Each structure stands twice: as C-alpha cells, then as structure tokens.
Simulated assay, not measured.
Amino acid sequence: MKDNMENCPHCNTNLQGELIPKEQQESYGATHFTRKIGIYDLLKDQTVKWKCPDCGDEWDR
C-alpha cells in the first residue's frame, strides 16, 4: 500500500496527512491522506494544479 510520502517542491514541507483508517485504506489505495490542495478548473473539469497549505505556492499536476 502506498504511503503518500511527498514534499512541497518549493518549501520542502511534508505533505503527508493523517493516517487513513485501516479498513478504508484499500478504497483510497494509500495509507495516509494528503495535505496538498487541488486547484480545480471547471472548464477543463479536472484538477490542474496543486497548492501547498504551508507556503501557498502552486505547481502543475
């Protein structure tokens, strides 16, 4: 199972969130939630960027 270990490419803060309850991990395909924020484009109907909750910088998906 994937552990979602990821750091912000700008400030290097850990973006791994809280532990997903064991019985739900298979549905998510991961062991932890993520802290990164998805920037959604309504016209494209998809997430186009990610945003760091700590430094506020954005990067392409």
Rank of each mutant, 00 (worst) to 15 (best):
M1A: 09
K2C: 01
K2L: 04
K2W: 01
K2Y: 08
D3G: 06
D3V: 01
M5E: 11
M5T: 05
E6D: 08
N7G: 03
C8E: 07
P9V: 00
P9L: 01
H10S: 05
H10Y: 10
C11M: 04
C11R: 06
N12S: 13
N12C: 09
N12W: 03
N14C: 11
N14P: 01
N14D: 15
L15V: 06
Q16F: 05
Q16T: 12
Q16G: 05
E18H: 02
E18D: 14
P21D: 12
P21F: 04
P21N: 10
K22I: 08
K22R: 08
E23C: 00
E23V: 00
Q24I: 00
Q25L: 03
E26M: 00
A30L: 05
A30N: 11
A30D: 09
H32G: 09
H32I: 05
F33M: 13
F33D: 13
F33L: 13
T34Y: 02
R35L: 15
K36I: 08
I37G: 05
G38S: 14
G38M: 09
G38L: 09
I39E: 05
I39G: 11
I39V: 15
Y40P: 05
Y40L: 02
Y40M: 00
Y40T: 02
Y40E: 04
L42K: 13
L43S: 14
K44E: 14
K44A: 15
K44C: 02
D45S: 09
Q46M: 14
T47G: 09
V48A: 11
K49C: 11
K49V: 08
K49E: 15
W50E: 11
K51R: 15
K51M: 12
K51F: 07
K51G: 09
C52E: 10
P53C: 03
P53F: 07
D54H: 12
G56K: 03
G56M: 00
D57N: 12
D57R: 10
D57K: 12
D57E: 13
E58C: 11
E58I: 07
W59T: 09
D60M: 07
R61N: 13
R61E: 15
